[in-house]
Amino acid sequence: MFAEFLQYLFTGITIGATYALIALGFTLIYNASHVINFAQGEFLMIGGMATVSLTAMGVPMVLAIILAVLLAGVLGILLQRFAIAPAKQADVVTLIIITIGASIFIRGLAQLVWGKEYHVMQNFSSDEPIRIFGAVLNSQSLWVLGIGAILVVGLVLFFTRTLIGKAILATSMNKEAARLVGIRTQLVLMLAFLVSAVLGSVAGIVVAPITFTSYDIGIMLGLKGFVAAAIGGLGSGIGAVVGGLLLGVVEAMAAGYISSDYKDAVAFSMILVVLFFMPRGLFGAKVVERV
């Protein structure tokens, strides 16, 4: 009984950690520009696919991972420079639509370059699963959780301790004021895309040994990441992490205890329930309407 529960919990936390990383990417860009970047899932895909194809070419794994993250980062900057920046006067809604277009474009490109097959990535460490109280934990799960935790701590430090981080925060709070005190807001926006692309690609790489990877892996994972960000409250870092973990655990519990048929339905109706009672999400900023 307990072993069963523990098993669902492990499953949920592992996939939840991935959702959390994707949600953080959404949050970053949302904070800097109020744009919901629907190409976030594609960063994930680029990370995984580039690592797989580089290792297949004989590049050592560690180097392949670094190159893949760099590639995703460059892609993030390009996306901001060539798709978002030229339309800076446009509505947020228009920008969101641009990101959807960009994601379809990137996916199409990936399909041409890498084909449509699914690919395997080796576990970072041993293939041997770890047994705890009768439940089984894939050793890769520990990598997902560990790297996820490191990234979250790193982000917190980045935003509270560095000037650039503070500049991003300032821009998110008030763009006009930030510009007045001398922050180059376009540069900040570019940085936000870069960091979020790096986050996404790292998530894509650590989770690839568990989920496999293919050109279209970003669609569903990106969507789930968005749900996690919305549950947590768009724009909140803690919200993204909690939302992601919560979503993963609820999904796994639903599949285990209710029925696997309703797993996705439970996940997506969770967003309704949360937003109904807390329209800004669990940790969303309180907005005071000034009259």
Partner: peptide, 16 residues
């Protein structure tokens, strides 16, 4: 048990 095409982990179903 069932799983959808985009599922990335079927441990819960198999545990059942």
């Amino acid at each position: 048990e069932t799983y959808s095409g985009s599922d990335t982990d079927m441990t819960a179903q198999l545990t059942n």
